[in-house]
Write a protein that binds this DNA or RNA. Structure first.
Lengths: 203, 203
DNA sequence: AATTTTGATGAACATGGTATTCATTAATGA
DNA sequence: TCATTAATGAATACCATGTTCATCAAAATT
């Protein structure tokens, strides 16, 4: 009568496959990993893999779901926690993000470093970008027009965040997470505020 | 006695392979292109391909060499041509870049758009980044220390340029090349100047 | 504890791409 | 014209994919 998949074997198998993939991701470039490698590492049969997942990407998405969402969450609980900047709200609070990533650097470097996984980068970039765009929308009067649309600005900010993260992870994190947060704020925000203030009318 | 490969057949074959690859790149995602596709399109035998190139990537690098270098050249002939900004030199002149890319949007979208070719992105990113870092070095007094190293700043600037390019190409270029140049300058440069001026001593 | 349901398994298979070899053919430059 | 050199395609060994199926083992249900 139970439709729920509470069967221990299912849990066990999926866990094994997930772990195998994460292990492999930390060892080699994602693109070079094959289903063969994964099942070898997990010690499972080929048919077992395909009875749970459609493809490598399917496993990737479902296996990394938690991790991805915790990252996005770090950014989206912005900016209430972080009031130290005083006058202006930060628009995007990145301090917790850099801290959490520091904690699990090995995995995150494999995912977001220069040899990371494009699929995941894009997913995260998109989420963050959408979030920022909403923040900007709330901030601006409805008839406000800048030279650059909120869409570009948001895309730019999310892109910058990921670029800095990649650099940080690839260069053995030469700055503390707190410093990275400062660098992000100081490098990016002046331009953003400047553009948000410049209406088309003014030009 | 001629070591030069002036044999017309060689020229012809390589041209055919190059063209085939570029055609395919404009049609489908690079990763899905196989050597099989390339030789089918070029109407050449399998062994012919391998007698010229080691792999798909080999052909990619050599085939796109000219294109990549013209892009990098656009950025590196900076900033002498573009004096309209008056007081400050632009550090990075992007106007010609956006213009040239507009000219060949189809190809560049295939390469630098969201579904573009990571290998090429990285190569371009690296070249531009190195160039900017040199520019910054020339600008700063030797003992100057910022919160952020010239290396991060350069990496950030190059990253932003590519991010904006990607956005522009993926969204059917809603702004003119000149406007994109302005957006880049106004979004990025305030933060960069702000960080370059903030010495560690001051904090 | 017995029974039924469900997942795991491995072998087999068809498919399709890779990268190399080699003997033959054709175009090229001198 | 002719020696050289490239193109060719057929053959080959290899490996990964994705699917099927009959069998086995471990769950859940009774």
């Amino acid at each position: 009568m139970k439709k729920e998949k509470t069967d221990r074997r299912i849990q066990r198998t999926r866990q094994l496959l997930s772990n195998a993939l994460i292990e492999l991701i930390e060892e080699q470039k994602y693109e070079t990993i094959t289903v063969q490698h994964i099942i070898d590492r997990a010690n499972l049969g080929r048919s077992t893999f395909y009875s749970h997942y459609q493809s490598k990407e399917d496993l990737l998405y479902r296996g990394l779901d938690d991790i991805i969402h915790s990252l996005i969450w770090d950014v989206e609980r912005s900016p209430k926690n972080d009031q130290e900047n005083g006058i202006r709200q930060p628009l995007l609070s990145t301090a917790p993000l850099f801290r959490d990533i520091q904690e699990q650097r090995r995995l995150y470097r494999a995912i977001l470093g220069g040899n990371g996984i494009e699929l995941v980068r894009k997913k995260i970039h998109h989420h963050i970008s959408v979030h920022i765009q909403e923040q900007i929308a709330q901030l601006l009067p409805v008839d406000h027009r800048c030279i650059a649309s909120p869409a570009v600005i948001a895309y730019h900010m999310a892109g910058t965040l990921l670029t800095l993260l990649t650099w940080w992870l690839d260069n053995n994190r030469p700055y503390k997470p707190e410093t990275m947060n400062e660098i992000f704020q100081e490098l990016v925000m002046p331009g953003v505020w400047s553009v948000l203030k410049t209406t088309n009318a003014q030009r």
